[in-house]
Each structure stands twice: as structure tokens, then as C-alpha cells.
């Protein structure tokens, strides 16, 4: 049996006290093996950011145990946690979060300044990553001149530069068009499969779920594995996006039928002119052979 890269047991995180006490994360346990790609999804306010912050050694839990690469985070000082993040975890953010004053190459090399050997030892690795991610021609560019897809690829290269065993990505496709989003999904998939890294992705993107080994659903602070569950696929009547009616949290009833939506915006558009959208198969179960791959 392999040792998990990430292991969290009975994680609880509360904010406030007394009447204002909120249990943002409530008894969550999760493990990530090397080479495994796991997604965490859930409705807004379900505690995803809190959980991922705890798993990423950015936030200490109120109780429970988190181990990354065997290290018990509760036993580490703040400085040791910083060192662990620099060396063992790669972060990819929805807003890319590149350092605006640095070039693409310097952004990629930035975490290397925090690792043994410094940037000099990482230069060849940075060039190789830039080439692999199709960014060689943009190595001297500043972030403000890059497209969203390019920025996210730079962020992925930055996350990989110190060769961490764990990659944590927060909505990595959230700000990308479908083509760039697909590209990023496949890169993260390759990182897990080819490089044996554990990849944890917080996402609402169906495409990521399709390549994930496990899909974890977080709601009201608790987590459950949803990959094996039978899903109830429906389409958003406004944008036609495939949705799982079982987990969808945005819906409206009209003419005796429940319609599910990908966003409040679609729901509002639907409610403004429901007759415009009720002509097709919206809200109905999509036959098995037409389920999204």
C-alpha cells in the first residue's frame, strides 16, 4: 500500500463562537495517493475554500489531523508551514495570481527562490516547463500582455517548478474560455498521470470531473465521494449546459416541472420568459447514450 501524499482526518474548522459559531468544515477526512486527481465540488458557501486552505497548509484546523508527505501540519511552526508550502505544494489559482512586475520566466522561477539551490538550479527546469507548456516564445513577456490561457499555463509552470508532490488548484478553468479550459484540464491530468503528482482541484467544471479519479462533493461542511454515484443528468434550459440534477442547487419549478440551472443568471433569464425556454427537453433526464463524456 502506498503512503498518501495528503491525508486529512476528521478535520473541523469553526469560525466565531456561541450563537455566531459556524462549522465551515465538519469532520472531513480525505486522502490523496500519488498520481491521483481528485476534485472537490459543492455549492457556494459549502466550505470549499476553507477546506482547500486547510489542505494547502494555509489555515490551521480547529481539530483533526492533516499530513502532507508524512509531515503532521499541527506540529509545524508558521515558518515551517511556509517552507513546506514552498517545497511540497504547488498552487494554481482561479485568478492566476501572477506577480505583475515579473516576466513569465521570473514568475515561474519565483518559488525556486524559496527552495534549496535557488533559482540557478531551477533555470533549466523552468525552460523545460515553459517549452512543455508552449510558453517559450512568451518567456520575457509581462503577465499583463498574456491571454487568460497563457496566464494559467504560467501559473501551472510556477506550481511545478519546485517539483512538489501535491498540486492544489482552485477553479483553474473558472476564468478561461472553453478551449483554454480544456487545455488546462489536460495539463493537470497529465501532471497526475505522467508525473505521479497528487492533484486536488476545486472546480465546478464538468470537464475536470470527467478526468478525475474521484469527485468529492462538499456540502454543509461534510464531504462525500460522488464519482461512483448514479447521476441525474439534465440540461440548463437557457445555456444548455449538462447538469447533475441530484447535486444542482439552482432550480425553479414551472408548469409542474423542475428546471435546473448552471447559474443564477440563467435562472433569472428563464424566469423572465419561461415560455421561450420550455419548448425543448430542458429539465428532463438525458438518455444514457447522450450523457456528456
Amino acid at each position: 500500500m502506498t503512503t498518501p501524499i495528503l491525508s486529512a482526518r476528521d478535520i473541523v474548522k469553526t469560525f466565531g463562537e456561541g450563537h455566531t459559531l459556524v462549522r465551515a468544515v465538519d469532520g472531513v477526512s480525505v486522502e490523496l495517493q500519488p498520481g491521483e486527481l481528485v476534485t472537490i465540488t459543492g455549492p457556494s458557501g459549502s466550505g470549499k475554500t476553507t477546506l482547500v486552505s486547510i489542505l494547502g497548509a494555509l489555515l490551521r484546523p480547529s481539530s483533526g489531523e492533516v499530513r502532507i508527505d508524512g509531515a503532521d501540519l499541527s506540529a509545524l511552526s508558521d515558518a515551517e508551514l511556509s517552507r513546506l508550502r514552498a517545497r511540497s505544494i504547488g498552487f494554481v489559482f482561479q485568478s492566476f495570481n501572477l506577480l505583475e512586475a515579473l516576466s513569465v520566466r521570473d514568475n515561474v522561477l519565483f518559488p525556486a527562490t524559496l527552495a534549496p539551490g535557488g533559482t540557478r538550479a531551477a533555470e533549466a527546469r523552468a525552460d523545460a516547463l515553459l517549452e512543455k507548456l508552449g510558453l517559450t516564445g512568451r518567456r520575457s513577456a509581462l503577465p499583463r500582455t498574456l491571454s487568460g490561457g497563457e496566464k494559467q499555463r504560467v501559473a501551472i509552470a510556477r506550481a511545478l517548478i519546485n517539483e512538489p508532490k501535491l498540486i492544489i488548484a482552485d477553479e483553474p478553468t473558472g476564468n478561461l474560455d472553453s478551449k483554454s479550459g480544456q487545455q488546462v484540464v489536460m495539463i493537470l491530468h497529465d501532471v497526475a498521470r505522467d508525473q505521479g503528482k497528487s492533484v486536488l482541484i476545486v472546480t465546478h467544471d464538468q470537464r475536470v470531473e470527467e478526468v478525475a479519479d474521484r469527485v468529492l462533493w462538499l456540502e454543509d461542511g461534510t464531504l462525500r465521494d460522488r464519482k461512483a454515484e448514479v447521476r441525474d443528468w439534465v440540461r440548463d434550459p437557457v445555456c444548455n449546459m449538462a447538469l447533475d440534477a441530484w447535486t444542482s442547487t439552482i432550480f425553479a419549478d414551472h408548469g409542474g416541472t423542475r428546471f435546473h440551472f448552471c447559474s443564477d443568471r440563467c435562472r433569472e433569464r428563464f424566469l423572465a420568459k419561461p415560455d421561450k425556454y420550455t419548448g425543448h427537453e430542458s429539465g428532463t433526464v438525458i438518455p444514457l447514450e447522450r450523457r456528456p463524456k
Binding site: 514552498a86 517545497r87 506577480l99 505583475e100 519565483f110 510556477r158
Partner: peptide, 14 residues
Amino acid sequence: ERELAVMKALGVRN
């Protein structure tokens, strides 16, 4: 502030 938050997340110490 945001860049500093990112740097801290990446492992830069205070």
C-alpha cells in the same frame, strides 16, 4: 496586498 497574499501562499515568510 493580493500579491503579498499570493507570495505568502507560495511559501514566502513574513
